[in-house]
Design a protein around this nucleic acid. Structure first.
Lengths: 234, 234
DNA sequence: CGTGTCATTTTGTGATCACAAAATCCTGCT
DNA sequence: AGCAGGATTTTGTGATCACAAAATGACACG
């Protein structure tokens, strides 16, 4: 068997005995693995992902993988083709416009809703995340950047305790993240800029309008880079 | 075996032989059955729904039901409790506010995007649906009303060919529809009013701003009735 | 050398099984 | 009668199996 690059694990296959797994623990583990794999761009759009393949990589039976794949397909993070094959959907200009529009409608709203729940401590955490992001930008670690950028935004949104809007935004991120990764692989991270500091300042000043503007600008700017690429490439 | 009210089928159990089922046909059938069951309010919020129970009602093995339930849980149409039981989440004031806010953000937007695709023929179809709705309101058929109201809105939204915003709105409807049904069962359909005729007129006039206003007003008004109930009842 | 055809393998799907946790029911006691 | 405790049933979960469809590869023919 040829040694091929695993999309989910870098180390050798874990063969530990299954133990102390409470109700539905295996599925959660599989779900988390695939989900973070999508958010950090470890899956290539257009490339088919097989149930048995993932199951083997994660050392579980195909069963939990099947259910997780169905879940992610329901969130439009994955696409089930008519023949049953499942793959990361590739980005089209129309899809991209829709994702951008939806993000601009929902995320500033949720950020504003989060503002009353964001304490000074939360602002400090965001500051810390943003510092890490800056380090990733200069070092060019695209995967870490994507993970931290996700953490930055969702640290804000999660403060709302939202059970409706937050999952919608979650779905949106899962849809554009894999595409984002391919672009960063092409243009690097040096050209990336964000409005995180502006957002942090707005949070500290408790200025909800400024926060909306900062988040919206951050989205427009970040997605703008992607948008130019999608029109340039095929 | 006692004859109990089936949540999905009104007639006797179909025992036809499985045949000519192409790839994934069983799952699609189960998905459609449960989904329309949710949209027409045939499931009671808070009432647990069992895999084996649904499988028996639909005459299939538990397997496709499991996957469909996972899908619907991913869309927040169903809730998986920590012990694995699955149920229709019951509405809370916070959830309700969020759904309303999300609908007001997304649906007018998608309606406006749909306008260029809505031909005169489409307007006629909407008119026809709205006429049926009016008949349901006087006859008091809540289930038919819900199905037709859904058809009215989504006939508009689907015209966009949207692959991102439309699924988000789909998820929202699945979340409030079951709750809607319980309210209608309590207050009847006589007090229901909508802004559909206003929307149809806006479409005919190709007035996108008027269409936005009509859709937003329709949502606010329809949800307003529900909102009062959720505060009144527990 | 390209191309169509056929055999082989891979893959998704639905069903069934085994097991543990949870819920339910029944019983016996106060 | 009310209630606690245990036995029984129900239920979700993960694994495995059988089957058909699809993808892949090999191979002969033009």
């Amino acid at each position: 068997m040829p040694i091929r690059r695993s999309a989910l694990k870098s180390g050798p296959a874990k063969t530990e005995t299954r133990q102390a797994t409470s109700r539905g623990a295996t599925r959660e583990q599989v779900d988390a693995a695939i989900r973070t794999g999508l958010l950090t761009g470890r899956f290539i759009p257009g490339k088919a992902v097989t149930i048995r393949g993932l199951a083997a990589e994660l050392g579980v039976s195909p069963m939990p993988v099947r259910e997780v794949l169905q879940r992610l397909a329901a969130e439009n993070a994955l696409e089930v083709k008519p023949n049953g094959r499942v793959q990361v959907p590739d980005m089209t200009p129309a899809r991209f416009d829709e994702v951008l529009k939806a993000r601009l409608l929902l995320e500033p709203e949720l950020a504003e809703l989060a503002l009353p729940h964001l304490t000074a401590g939360a602002a400090g955490d965001l500051q810390s995340i943003d510092d890490d992001i800056d380090r990733c930008l200069v070092s060019g670690d695209a995967e870490a950047y994507m993970r931290l950028n996700h953490a930055f935004h969702f640290s804000i949104y999660r403060a709302t305790g939202s059970k409706v809007l937050l999952p919608l935004i979650d779905s949106l991120w899962l849809q554009f993240a894999p595409f984002m990764r391919t672009v960063y692989g092409r243009v690097g991270t040096a050209s990336l800029v964000d409005r995180h500091k502006e957002a942090i300042r707005a949070i500290k000043l408790r200025d909800k309008q400024a926060l909306r503007v900062a988040i919206a600008a951050d989205i427009s700017q970040g997605m703008g880079i992607l948008g130019k690429e999608i029109l340039a490439g095929t």
